[in-house]
Computed example of a mutant assay.
Amino acid sequence: MIYELRIYYIKPGKMEDIHNRFSNLTIDLFKKHGMNTLDFWEDAEGKNIIYYILEHKDMEAREQNFYNFKKDPKWIEGKRISELNGPIVEKVESVFMKRVPYSPFNKIV
C-alpha cells in the first residue's frame, strides 16, 4: 500500500465550501473510484488548509483511480456547481508515503 497526504490550500472565505464539497460529493466519489479516505484534518493554527490521507494499492492504481474520478460526470458537475461563486482551492500538494515496519498501526491492522 501507499499513502497519499494531500494538502489543500483554500481560498479565503471558502472553508465552508470545501467542507461541503468533501462531505456531500468528493468522499463518496473517492470510494466509488477505489480510493480509501483514512482521515481529514484542518490546520490547528487557523490557516486555510485541509489535510487528508488516501490509501492506494500502488501508484498505478492511484493514477487510474484519479483519472476515472476526474472524468466522472458527477465530479465534473459537482465541482462546477461548487465553484459558481469562484474557485475554492488555491493549490494542492501531494506527498506519497509507505508505512515503516515498526509503525504502531501495523499492530492494529
Rank of each mutant, 00 (worst) to 15 (best):
R6Q: 06
L5C: 06
K74W: 01
I50E: 12
G46V: 08
R99D: 06
A44M: 06
N20R: 15
L38Y: 01
Y3F: 14
Y102D: 15
K70C: 09
D72H: 03
D58K: 09
K11L: 15
R21M: 14
N106T: 09
I7G: 03
E90Y: 00
M15Y: 03
F30P: 03
H56Y: 07
S94P: 06
M35W: 03
K11R: 14
P104T: 05
D28T: 01
I50S: 10
Y3K: 12
A44R: 07
F96Q: 13
F40L: 13
K91S: 05
E16S: 11
E60V: 12
V89L: 14
K47W: 02
N65G: 08
N36W: 01
L38A: 07
H19G: 04
E4Q: 14
E90Q: 08
I81L: 10
I27G: 00
F30R: 02
M35T: 13
G13E: 10
V100T: 14
D28E: 07
E4I: 07
E93S: 05
F69Y: 13
M59L: 14
D58L: 10
M97Y: 07
L38S: 04
E16L: 08
N48T: 10
I27Q: 02
P104S: 09
D43G: 02
H56P: 10
E4F: 03
E63Q: 14
G86S: 07
R99P: 01
R6T: 07
E60T: 14
I53C: 07
P101Y: 00
W41Y: 14
T37P: 02
E77K: 10
E63H: 11
K107T: 10
I108P: 00
P101W: 00
G46C: 06
I18C: 10
K47Q: 13
F30Y: 13
H33F: 03
P87N: 09
L25A: 05
I2G: 09
N24M: 12
V95S: 04
L38I: 15
I18L: 15
M59D: 04
H33N: 09
W75S: 03
R6M: 06
K70M: 12
R21D: 05
H33C: 07
G34E: 02
E83M: 10
M35I: 15
E16I: 05
E90W: 00
M15S: 09
V89A: 08
V100N: 06
I10R: 08
V95T: 13
N85S: 12
Y8K: 10
F96H: 15
N20I: 06
V100H: 03
K71W: 01
I108W: 05
F40G: 05
I7K: 05
E55C: 09
Q64T: 12
H33E: 04
Y3L: 15
E83H: 02
